[in-house]
Design a protein around this nucleic acid. Structure first.
Lengths: 188, 188
DNA sequence: TGTTTTACTTACATATAAGTAAGTATATTT
DNA sequence: AAATATACTTACTTATATGTAAGTAAAACA
């Protein structure tokens, strides 16, 4: 078959997985091609440069988060929070993968500008979603916390990303401890 | 001069800096040698393999934290917390470097086993120090928080590491927002 | 049916990485 | 003063990375 394959999608899928596992700098065309049973140049056909592939990976992640936001739009505040936390725990359970934003942030200075800015855009979207959730959750008396919702959103989003990473070092219970504390501190 | 130089110390110093900036995988002997005005093989003389150098870097960081713990042992609870937070902010101010534990955690699957375990050991020391600080701070009514001190320590340490990383994406104010919220939530 | 486009493969170019073996100049030790 | 250890340099090996140019088989199209 030489036309209408799903190779392009598979490349992005695998690249996403590899970035969450080992970071963008460690991602190689060899890893992808050997796992897909294709040649190196086949990837360059779909994504001329590694940067092109990287940008596409992060863009697709933003799309996925757009879908997530739409899917939970009818949920209650606590349900939304739990849904978000569950997604992160799935990364953890998948051989200690981390989140895309954390992966891009920690390798920030080794990734091309376009990926940097796309990752920044992604984080801003997540942080805004969290801020809105906390703000409305507080006004509806679902969540209780002091200070500005934006600051609380900063704290929670960073704690979750950091929690995933630290769980690699000392075990998954660390992530659960972070989540437990976050939830506890949102209760009355 | 062919004996009694401080090249070895300079190598570790520079390697530390480069890991905090770009991560262990992106660290190269070329970067180090060119910046020190020596040849590649000179680094291999002091550190035969990159793994040897990496382990030494993390070990030196543990020593530095030992010194920190000793230096602040006479401080009050809030002073200790502020001192720790100030150290992290210095990383941020130094061209958005991140902390060693976060750097090792995010590149965990790309670093040799010895570095993984040394970094894990380091994080456990930091987390234990934080747990003790929070525990004693609460009993002395300096800090106020709900739940287990270990969980609160998990939350704060991960939020700070994640905060440093996320600040690269959207600016240093993000880190300050995290710190502001952490402090606010430790008050009465 | 013939042409063009799609989706590749083959083969190669270039750069850079870690690491090693052997040589050398200086400093220290005996 | 001679021997030895220290701290390198030179020169090389091997592996792997991104990327490119040219060729090819199958599918889509006109």
């Amino acid at each position: 078959m030489k036309a209408r394959t799903d190779t392009k999608e598979k490349i992005v899928e695998l690249a996403t997985d590899l970035i969450l596992a080992g970071g963008y700098p460690s991602l190689s065309y060899q890893q992808i091609s050997s796992k897909l049973g294709i040649k190196n140049a086949a990837i360059h056909y779909h994504y001329p440069s590694k940067e092109d592939l990287g940008v596409e990976v992060v863009r697709k992640e933003i799309e996925r988060f757009d879908d997530f936001m739409a899917a939970v739009s009818g949920f209650g505040q606590w349900e939304k929070l739990e849904a978000f936390m569950l997604n992160y725990r799935k990364y953890l359970e998948n051989e200690n993968r981390i989140c895309m934003i954390g992966a891009c942030a920690s390798d920030y200075r080794e990734i091309p500008e376009q990926i940097q800015s796309t990752a920044a855009e992604y984080f801003q979207i997540v942080k805004n979603w969290f801020t809105d959730l906390l703000e409305s959750g507080r006004s509806e008396k679902a969540f209780y916390f002091r200070g500005e919702a934006a600051n609380k959103a900063s704290l929670i989003s960073s704690a979750m990303a950091g929690g995933l990473q630290h769980a690699r070092l000392i075990g998954n219970a660390h992530y659960d401890a972070v989540i437990t504390q976050i939830k506890l501190e949102l209760q009355e």
